[in-house]
Write a protein that binds this DNA or RNA. Structure first.
Lengths: 235, 235
DNA sequence: CCATGTGAACAAATTCACAGCA
DNA sequence: TGCTGTGAATTTGTTCACATGG
């Protein structure tokens, strides 16, 4: 900014958190940047420029600079970014500077696979309790945990301080389970069931909808294009 | 359109396919519309207005009309949309009016779960062959199929006319496997490994990246907002 | 002199408001 | 009259070009 800074009521240091809401697409990109930076860190790389980062991803250097400048003044002009400090900064922005205990509901094929997946056993994420409504399954061990009944949800939320639940139940049960999680105090849900979950006050939902993703892929076949666009979503 | 239709070089009937590229976000929405319409069809509902559809989703009626008008002249003014014919139209636009045999690579926990998932056993999708590089696993049965070695990929592509592959292998193997699939003639890949796949000429990639999605969810916790935004995502 | 940070130009997508037709 | 279809307005996001500062 060149001019017009006089009426600045923002106290210094308040810029990291609580600034303007960052669009979801940008958050996704920050996740990717973080992953790449962790790889660089493992390779003992100490600093990196937006150019170099842009080569690793499929993005423009300008986009990276915009994203990073938006979330805080990392980066040294004329030099680039210092890897360890940028990692710390991104973790803080994304909220990854603390543990995130996860509750997993639904111990069918998918649920059992997720319970054992390295993704959910890598800091800062860890599955701390698993649930199923089937009395036959309750009490059985899965991935070092004992399957609990749905009635134990609320207790688990407060015991572990869990804020995130994972839903891996059949479609027809998904909405009920999501409501139960929200009622138990969970603030975020990762939903694997191919159904649209209605708004749950105080609880954010992200869907991993394999049918939609597959259909998106089918449509992409037609154009032969290998776009990929970073996310999608997702993903 | 009110005026200026004279210089229209587009022959009638060519509007459905081969019109302008539809943005990915819109394709995702069409998938959701289709799902809702199938539910309405099962409930014997014969027609529906954009208003009614908008209530089922979390979208504006205007968005639905725009999306649907963009892909073809379904809809009757003053009445709404006829459910069965709109279903047919959307299936055609999305490319779901034909079978889509799927090849699944990676028979770890996730791979086995996916092999048995109803999502991949519901028309028009069906897993027709499964693969693993581990000789110990080759020959073993999974979900009614026999695990094949990676060397059998190309033969399976031509035998089944498969165009889509699913990658459920560990991160470090994912890029190699994606290249192998593309080399075997696959035109689309659904990648579950949390890695960025480089561009593969002639092969579209969609990532189901649980780490990125979880991190997105963590960020959403902060705002307490239950936005959800329909997509992605994703992913 | 280099690479960041950022206003300004640009592009894409969504919403609005109403014309047009059953 | 009611609901679709669609140009125009608006909002949102991305790219560019250059001033800034270590």
């Amino acid at each position: 900014m060149t001019f017009g800074k006089a009426p600045d009521p923002m106290p210094a240091g308040a810029s990291l958190l609580a600034s303007r809401p960052i669009p979801t697409a940008a958050i996704n990109r920050l996740s990717h940047y973080l992953r790449c930076l962790l790889e660089l860190e493992a390779r003992k790389v100490r600093n990196v420029s937006s150019q170099q980062l842009a080569r690793s991803f499929h993005l423009s250097a300008a986009q990276i600079r915009k994203d990073l400048s938006q979330v805080g003044g990392f980066g040294i002009r004329g030099v680039g970014y210092e890897v360890p400090s940028l990692i710390r900064g991104l973790k803080q922005v994304l909220g990854l500077d603390r543990e995130h205990p996860l509750l997993l509901v639904g111990m069918g094929n998918l649920g059992r696979a997720l319970a054992q997946s390295p993704v959910f056993q890598t800091a800062p994420f860890r599955i701390v309790a698993v649930f199923d409504k089937d009395p036959q399954k309750v009490g059985k061990p899965v991935a070092g945990l004992e399957i609990e009944p749905m009635s134990a949800l609320r207790a688990a939320v407060s015991r572990f301080g869990a804020r995130i639940g994972i839903v891996a139940v059949p479609p027809r049960a998904a909405v009920t389970v999501c409501r139960a999680l929200a009622a138990a105090g969970v603030q975020g849900i990762l939903n694997f069931a191919p159904v649209r979950v209605p708004d749950l006050p105080g609880c954010a939902v992200r869907n991993v909808d394999l049918i939609v993703t597959l259909e998106e892929l089918v449509y992409a076949l037609r154009s032969g294009g290998s776009d990929g666009a970073l996310r999608p979503e997702g993903v």
